[in-house]
Design a protein around this nucleic acid. Sequence first.
DNA 1: TAGATTGTTAATCGATTAACAATC
DNA 2: TAGATTGTTAATCGATTAACAATC
Lengths: 210, 210
Amino acid sequence: MNPLAIPEIVIRRLPLYLRTLKLLQDQGQSVTSSQEIGDKLGISATQIRKDLSYFGEFGKQGTGYDVRYLQEQLQQILQVDSTWNLALIGAGDLGRAILRYSSFEEGGFSIVAVLDRDRDKIGRRIGKLQVLDIAKLPEVIKEHRIQIAIIAVPTNDAQEVADALVNVGVKAILSYAPIPLSLPAHIRVQHIDPLVGLQSMTYYLDPSQR
Amino acid sequence: MNPLAIPEIVIRRLPLYLRTLKLLQDQGQSVTSSQEIGDKLGISATQIRKDLSYFGEFGKQGTGYDVRYLQEQLQQILQVDSTWNLALIGAGDLGRAILRYSSFEEGGFSIVAVLDRDRDKIGRRIGKLQVLDIAKLPEVIKEHRIQIAIIAVPTNDAQEVADALVNVGVKAILSYAPIPLSLPAHIRVQHIDPLVGLQSMTYYLDPSQR
DNA sequence: TAGATTGTTAATCGATTAACAATC
DNA sequence: TAGATTGTTAATCGATTAACAATC
């Protein structure tokens, strides 16, 4: 339909490029090449150049890419050059691990509220945040202008929580629940499910050694 | 090369079908169709039938698929019809959340050992397991015939841990560290990185509302 | 039988890659 | 200048889908 639409598969590779550039920068490297990035990710250099070419020209012939500059450009493209406020639903073990996982901050996200429905958890402190009653969801979302939420509740509650999030205006959901969620088509959903990775690896393993 | 090789993208969809079948079974449904599975996953019915056809014929014309039977068949195909022993490296918040995450057990995996290098964590109990010294890695791997390990250590230690795992014969790694790992080509690696999902969703969000 | 749904073929669509001119 | 590497085109490759016969 839209001739300028960029394939989603390309968009999904950009965070990998960003992750690799961060690694290179941490190692003190200031210039890189499509070849080098590709080697680290197991992606062809041509593909990386092609992906970048959807958005502009970021390199220099004969030299490569300035690590810092390309990083900034990718952050702008993905709109993570400034911070998104996130709400985290679920203050169990998983929720706590997510809260302490520092990569979110580096990646352009800030978890500004944790909510749970469990009386025992509400009011407890986790890091800098106090666990709020899920009943306060509408106010929290409005106050912090939250468009993205993370679901880290038990499987059985996930669909209900997702529906509630959509009702209060959340536009994108990162779900750790291992079930497919039924949501309106305009809501973006990403799943984190370690089983998908594990079960696709076992296909290739030698069962005789088990 | 191999004319019978099944595309990896197909293999990666099978766990999603399995996940959906489990959901249907939990809801007490005994028969389903490619249409129904597809609707839940946002995948076309044709694609599901095509994917399954790589492995055989599992349905009945006019009726659909027996939920339990198709589940069993997919488990066999993915080799998760019996249990794989896993080692978990890293006993921090993330490691503890992973240990308590029950889906692994349902999915054909059992975490049989947790290891860490931190003196403060070694010896501590998490659920049924006691945290072991990472120095014991070779014995642990051998004793439990472990082919798959989960990395849940700080980013800076991840590559080192991965190298150590490969050295003791681990064949597949599920890494929660947000960096690309450099490993021999024959080692299977899957990454769990929530940033990839988040950063690809923000591309599509309206920044004016931020 | 009529309706539903599978399994499969062939056509289409889209993504990857090979090749190379441009140029630093 | 020679060497390196980008950006881009066109060719290739592979994945998805439309269509439909088979059949429960």
